[in-house]
Amino acid sequence: MMHQSLFVYSGYRYLKLSMLLIIASVVAYAIHAPVDGPNGGTWLGYTLGGLGAFLILLLMWFGMRKRSYKSSMGKVEGWLSAHVYLGLALIVIATLHAGFQVGWNLHTLAYVLMFIVIISGIFGVYAYLRYPELMTKNRRGNTLELMMIEMSELDRECRETAAKLTDEISKCILESSEKTTIGGSVRQQLSGRPKHCATQSAFNKVSELNKSLPKEMADDGSRLITLLGKKCELVQRACRDVQYKAMMDIWLYFHVPLSFALLAALIAHVVSIFFYW
């Protein structure tokens, strides 16, 4: 189980390391009493700042490491475990480095970016713990591809059945098979349901039209309702599958670009400190 080994990896090695770093930082911060108050410019400030910058680079290197399958530099599993725990420790280290000072400047920008990146990462951990299970339940052994194949099979059956029925009904069926979409825009993917589901509206219309169907068509009519009902359920599950996948991905769209924003801000922060020494 990937999501468990992430936390317990190697006997909580990185949890212990992170706790050690946090405790050491807090103790040093508590003891240290610089004349101008705690800030990034004291010896402890520089130490914590150096440590923080190193951690940020290390955490970002995870993106490289996970793509390099040949690398022998530790297991990806271990890297991820370290990524999570050290990332959390970074909140404490960076805050103490700043000495709780904030302002409208580059330095606080870097801090805020770091914070958003970490928060999005925390959501990522949550998503990886929560959604795979929901996804498995929702798919019932299928994949999205299989669900879509099943949908087009249903479409064909619906059409064959509808061919014997009225024009209005076949129009509905045509719309259902030609206009039903799974997912869509970012918002639609995240919402888990399409804005206007053609299958659902076909189901509603056909149910209505069925009532005025002549007797000899009634069998085919009710068969069509059943088929459409099945398709509706399938569309819903497919949309939810897309939603879960989107939830597992969306945070990365903040986590990754903002971590590069952070990298730029970090470089500018370090350069500015020594430039105006």
Binding site: L144, T180, T181, I182, G183, Q189, A238, V242, K245
Partner: peptide, 8 residues
């Protein structure tokens, strides 16, 4: 259907 649907 696949063409219409944006699933990722």
């Amino acid at each position: 259907l696949k063409q219409r649907s944006v699933t990722t």
